[in-house]
Design a protein around this nucleic acid. Sequence first.
DNA 1: GTGAAAGCGCTAACAA
DNA 2: TTGTTAGCGCTTTCAC
Lengths: 339, 339
Amino acid sequence: MSIKKASTIQDVANKAKVSIKTVSRVINNEPNVSLETVKKVETAIDLLDYQPNAFAQSLARSKPKIISLIYDTPSPNYISHIMEGVLAYCYKVDYEVIIHPLRFNEVGLMRSAEKFIKKSRLAGLIVTPPYSDNVEFIKLIESFDLPKVLISSGLNISEEDSIKTNDREVSMQMTDYLISNGHKRIAFIKGHPTHLCINDRFKGYQDAMNRAGIEIDNSIVENGLNSLSSGEQCAERLLSLKERPTAIFSSNDEMAAGVIKVAYRNGLNIPSDLSVVGFDDSPMTAMITPPLTTVKQPLDAIGEKSAEKLIDKLENKELVRESVINSNIIYRDSVKKIN
Amino acid sequence: MSIKKASTIQDVANKAKVSIKTVSRVINNEPNVSLETVKKVETAIDLLDYQPNAFAQSLARSKPKIISLIYDTPSPNYISHIMEGVLAYCYKVDYEVIIHPLRFNEVGLMRSAEKFIKKSRLAGLIVTPPYSDNVEFIKLIESFDLPKVLISSGLNISEEDSIKTNDREVSMQMTDYLISNGHKRIAFIKGHPTHLCINDRFKGYQDAMNRAGIEIDNSIVENGLNSLSSGEQCAERLLSLKERPTAIFSSNDEMAAGVIKVAYRNGLNIPSDLSVVGFDDSPMTAMITPPLTTVKQPLDAIGEKSAEKLIDKLENKELVRESVINSNIIYRDSVKKIN
DNA sequence: GTGAAAGCGCTAACAA
DNA sequence: TTGTTAGCGCTTTCAC
């Protein structure tokens, strides 16, 4: 078991018989190196199994190749997939990622966020909801003049700083789907009011209902809080109505799961007595009975595109990138055609 | 919106009218600084809102304060919670964490792992399953002489390098619970064979059955692969047996969910016709009907303890730390008492 | 108890 | 096309 010692740029330079600057040029793909020299240097790099020291690079460069992913911690599935995408892209282009959970309700949040940003010497940040909806937080980032990409922000953000999904549109499609299955009395459970983007989902529902000429009955529009239990509470009310809805569209899966639990408790079968659809395609949706019809956001792709957009900005590349990524409906077994 | 510029150790030294070395001493809690000087320096630090530059520190120090968390990507819930714990502890003691997903089945895995370790100049690693069971991978770490903590490794690892849970014991308790509810014909679905620790769960089942003097019928011991669909397949077989089990103990929740789906498909009610228990307490277990009785591992605590153990090692602290963390059963509604 | 100087491994600015 | 030099911000000698 031989202990390996990392080699330095000087070692490479010695082996290739060039100056360290030349090695540096090769590493960073800078111009003005003869092909022959490049070959020599690359051979030496391979031979020594050389890896540049990221700290030394960061220290020497003005802008370190480090970005951070900021998130709260409500949903493991959401954040893991976003993170996957971000890490995958950054790994390709040789950026480091610092993962930073921040408790949304913590006192001194801004102070600790500021401290973090300072300490980490970030080049830029990727921000997920609910922080991407938080004006104060975004101002903080701007006060550092840091490039950023906000994921699914409900704020009025310039396109070059944001990545969004077409929640409103898919939500409309989902409602259309319900309508095309004969449903008219379609209840809607809204999401947490501070999550702006989730409320686009309600708008999509409104769009579809309006277009179909079905008047929205506000007594079957509930205000949820994204959690299982809040879904249950909404469902209790909805299902105890004299004129029950035939379908419930929940703005997220977790609340939809709450609806299904309450339905079973009340002796209702899904989907024969009640159709239910959700949003997010969280892993459990395939596991519950019946499997839930829901909307899948391509989270890995969102993470990847966010990282790409941010890094392109950092490197002053032309960015004519798409900023809307399409979600799509996953049809499963929780909707029944009625007449 | 004023753009803030980070201050350096020199700024602090100027303001406090001392040398940079003295500032460095204060930052690192080194001895031989008069109380008065410490006060002066600390005031200057506060005034300038100074944060040491982690790269410069890492570069100057031999050992950077950076560790990495290595994982595959099967389970968002598992890894997010472990990560939470690791990040929380590291944040407290001022270590950076690099999160590194590695595809288990990728070709050139070892090569890319090696490259990663070199490049990141890690001080140590925390390794989760399945890598903590991978001899080749562990040898790689050792070839770099890097301190490590292996989470839930099934290998014969020295206690100071590992954090485990009492899977075998809880698994025995769970089986006891089933037995005490009148079940004798208890099926078991084993987990993926390369995940060593998951097979401790089977041992616990054996322990309990043996102790209760119930002979284990191998025709109701299934080999699962941790996935929903593999749970379904096992359940298909189990439930088509002439002499059906009255309870099924699945080594993870996902397979248990598969069992429940198949049971419903076959017109069986849970728990009245069949009791089912799982392992992991993944979020969906509370959402399915009926809520599943399962085992909860304190994942955040595992992450935190792993980080603590690793960092104590890095800093040569005495480590008389516990290395086994207790899981416990979460009783819900998927088990019925039979006679 | 304190400070000056060297150097960690790299990049940037300037020469050659 | 290539090399030299001076830092980046910090810690580590070693001297005072």
